[in-house]
Structure formats: structure tokens, C-alpha cells
Design a protein around this nucleic acid. Structure first.
Lengths: 246, 246
DNA sequence: ACAAAAGTGTTTGAGTTACACCCATGA
DNA sequence: TCATGGGTGTAACTCAAACACTTTTGT
């Protein structure tokens, strides 16, 4: 921590947000098309510079609000992931960025007109396995964030952050399936969720779809950690009601 | 990421190292006594400013080498944890720090004369539950790092980073006991370690203490993740050889 | 009555805990 | 031969995956 006349320039600091949501059975991330150089026209993670009076968490909350409109009493989960610091990662000069992970429910409008040209939801899977590259080192940041999100669903109750206030077990199961990319057995899923006291609390209401039995509705409970953790396994075969071997 | 004339000063960036070791059955952390204001005379985590040509990981490796002499081919584990950014966390001005976790074997000399006044190993437990406060926000950083290290032993093979090149099962067990703060059953510990292919590899050698049966020696294996994870439980009672009910 | 989705109960087998017990050495 | 740490074997129990089966709706 001692400063003995060595060469260490002052540096600009940004936050970059990896905002995930689950839409149409797939995990998607919010990206903006850059309107200015560098990387003009390329997709990038939303983000911006940390200001003088705020800390990193504050900057991340502000950017999240600007990009999605989320942030009042109904704050989605927001968590710092890591710092990216290679000299040369930003052509404009020495810029260190700190990435944040946000989990949001499926939002009606992709964005609420910020300074970014256009914000779009993009499926994550195609972005990582081939496809166009994102601006800066955002491919790496996105990959790290996905890894982190998958771990989080195993050990915490944060899957509920992807859901509306009221949700069904099927909704919650689809979140796990989208993030992990594996099918789950709904019947075992019930027990795993219910064995952790306070993961979800029933509202007493039901929701009717076009077809099928109406599902009970739940809300996020007070629990935050999962003991024991969720395990990604259990390939559901639709083997029950309509395929008895007799 | 767009810069539209807003107020965002350039900032200085430091790395702070939480270097853990296990000595005398207890988890200890390397601290330096500050020779200059602010917090002169107080204990602090070793660290320093990131330089122009290097990234954060490079700065952390350099500081680790300066403080402990470790860093050649026998690199200890070094991992980025998080960024601490509150305005006012450093009286000298706006300084953002990024913390790193390092796991080191019990080193002969606490340090190799760096620019820091004096480096000492301090037991972690007393530091967190009462006692003197560390400089800056290093109490918070230390607490976060301990939490992270405990999680790491559950899910990775990194406990071996605390050991010498050759170690016994008893050595490895003592690492877990020191970091987790709970006693383990050596007999079940064997199986847990051995069920993960490549956690440790036997050398064929043995080590004799003053008393007792000589123990087989092992080295770190190629595995890095633990499936399934280690679980902290299993209170060893010394119930075997010498207390049969007959 | 049928299809489709929601939810419950039961079998089975793998994994863990808690031990009894044996082994190898120094004093 | 005793004390001390090292190491193996095993019975009882727990838990979770797999799957049969029942319930509740819309058409």
C-alpha cells in the first residue's frame, strides 16, 4: 500500500452489467448496439463509468436503472463478479472494468431509452458457441458470468429472481432448465424446493393455463442459501400418466 | 460504456493480498505493520499499486513474490476475490482496491524484507472476533476472504496448496480442520479424499514421526474440482483402539 | 371422454456416518 | 507391552432418482 514514487497512472473505471433473463425457455442477456467508436455497431454489455461520488455498487445500480427501468423497491438481484484489467482491453486508454451480474424477470419492453443506441435481448448460448464477437473483452465477461450464474442456482434461492412476483413450480423449473441447459423431473423438483424451508411460500392462489390442471402459485421466501444444494441431474422422461407398460 | 462529458475522475488502483497459511493447527494470515501514515503502526494486508504495464493479476503476483518470496515455478494458488470502492475508504484520495486470496504452505521465514516495515503471521480467528481493527477496510476484506476460502475447500482440491510438496493424510486433514474450525474423522476423511480420482497421488514413501505408525506420503494430483464436494461434519471421537466396551 | 399439465407416493440403490478393528512404530 | 498415530472393513441409516399413479382443468 506504500507509494514510493513508482509509476502508476490514474485509471478510469467502468462497470459492465450482465443482465440475464429467461424468455421463451431460453436464457437471454441484455446487450446494446454501440453507437460510437470503438467497436461502433458491435454488440456490447451495457455499462458506464463510475462517478466521483459513488462506489461500484452504486454505479451498477444506476446503470441497471437506466437500462431496464428496474431498481425501485422491486430491485432485482445485483452482484459484483470480477475486475478486468488488461492494458489494451480498451483502445481509448487504460480502463479497468468491474462486472456485475443481474437477474431479472422477463421484462415487457427491452429497455427504456437510455444513452445507448438500442438494447436487445439475445440468447446466450449462440453468443458463446460461435457467432459474432462482442465488443471489448465482453465475450470473456459473459462467459464468466454464465458460469457464476449456474453455480448460484445450485447454492442459493436466486432462481426466484428470474420470476414474476407470483410464479408456479413449473415456472421455477423452467428457470433452472434454461440456465443449466438440462431437463429436470418436475416431481423430484417439488421435493427439492420444498425441503429447503423458506425457499418459496404458497400464496393459496392458483393459475389456470389454456389446458391442464391449474398450478398453485408461490412467492419468494425468506431463505437465501440452499442446504443441501440443488443438483443438476434427473433427465425427465414423460413416462408417467400415458405410457404404462401394461 | 459511452463517455458523455460526465464527471468521472481518474482513480488509483491497488491490490491487497490475503495470504493464508496453516501453522500449528490454526489458520493464519500474513499482515504487515504500516510504517507510514495513514494508519501508521496498524496492521494491514500486504499490497500495493498496480503499475502501468501490468494487469491486476500481475500486480498481485509481484506483491506476493515481494512479501513471501513465493512465485517461481512453485506458485501458490492466487485468485481474485473482489473490488472495494467506497469513496473515503482511503484517506489519501480515491483508491479502489482489488483483493486477492493466496494459499501458502507454512513458510520458514515470515517474509523476505520488502518495503513494508515488518511482516507477521497472525491467527485469523482472534482478528475477526474482537481484537484490534486492521487498517483501511481490511477487516471486511479479510472476512470476505475467509468465507471464500472455506467454500473453496468444499468444492476444490486447493487444500493441497496449504501443504508442502509431500504431505500425509493427517496433514491434509489438519488443513481442513484449521480452515473450517471443526474436527474431522480421519477414517472417513480417507475415503472422501480417495473417492475423487486425482485429488492426491501416493508417492510410495512414508514419513515417521516420533511416535505412531509411519504415514504414507502423497502429492497434489491433477484433479481440481471435487464431485461430490467435501462436507463439513463428522465429529471425530477417539472411540476406537483403546476404548472397547468389553 | 380425452389430452395435457399439476401434484403425490413408493421403490430402490448409492453414499455417509459411526463405529469396531487391525497395523506399525518408538519408548 | 504400551501408547500413539495410521489405515481398513462394515452395518445402519439417509437421501435422492426413477417411475406408477391420481387430480384438475379445457375442449
Amino acid at each position: 500500500m506504500t507509494d514510493n514514487g513508482r509509476t502508476h497512472a490514474r485509471i478510469r473505471i467502468t462497470v459492465d452489467l450482465v443482465i440475464f433473463t429467461v424468455r421463451q425457455e431460453s436464457l437471454q442477456v441484455l446487450l446494446v448496439k454501440r453507437g460510437n467508436p470503438p467497436y461502433r455497431g458491435r454488440l456490447a454489455l451495457p455499462g458506464g463509468f463510475m462517478r466521483d461520488h459513488e462506489n461500484l455498487d452504486g454505479a451498477a445500480r444506476r446503470e441497471l436503472l437506466e437500462e431496464t427501468g428496474l431498481g425501485g423497491p422491486d430491485v432485482p438481484h445485483l452482484e459484483q463478479l470480477g475486475a478486468y484489467s488488461d492494458p489494451g482491453r480498451d483502445p481509448r486508454g487504460r480502463v479497468v472494468t468491474v462486472s456485475y451480474l443481474a437477474l431479472a424477470p422477463d421484462l415487457p419492453a427491452p429497455t427504456a431509452g437510455s444513452d445507448a443506441a438500442a438494447a436487445v435481448w439475445e440468447p446466450v448460448e449462440p453468443l458463446l458457441s460461435g457467432g459474432d464477437r462482442l465488443a471489448f473483452d465482453h465475450d470473456v465477461i459473459l462467459r464468466d458470468a454464465l458460469e457464476h450464474a449456474r453455480r448460484m442456482l445450485e447454492n442459493t434461492t436466486l432462481a426466484t429472481a428470474f420470476c414474476e412476483r407470483d410464479f408456479t413450480m413449473g415456472d421455477l423449473k423452467r428457470v433452472y432448465e434454461a440456465v443449466w441447459g438440462v431437463p429436470l423431473d418436475l416431481r423430484n423438483f417439488y421435493r427439492k424446493v420444498n425441503r429447503t424451508e423458506g425457499f418459496v411460500v404458497p400464496t393459496g392462489e392458483k393459475r389456470s393455463l389454456e389446458t391442464g390442471r391449474p398450478a398453485l402459485l408461490y412467492r419468494k421466501g425468506p431463505a437465501t442459501l440452499l442446504y443441501p444444494p440443488m443438483t443438476r441431474a434427473s433427465h425427465s422422461g414423460h413416462e408417467s400418466s400415458a405410457q404404462s407398460p401394461k
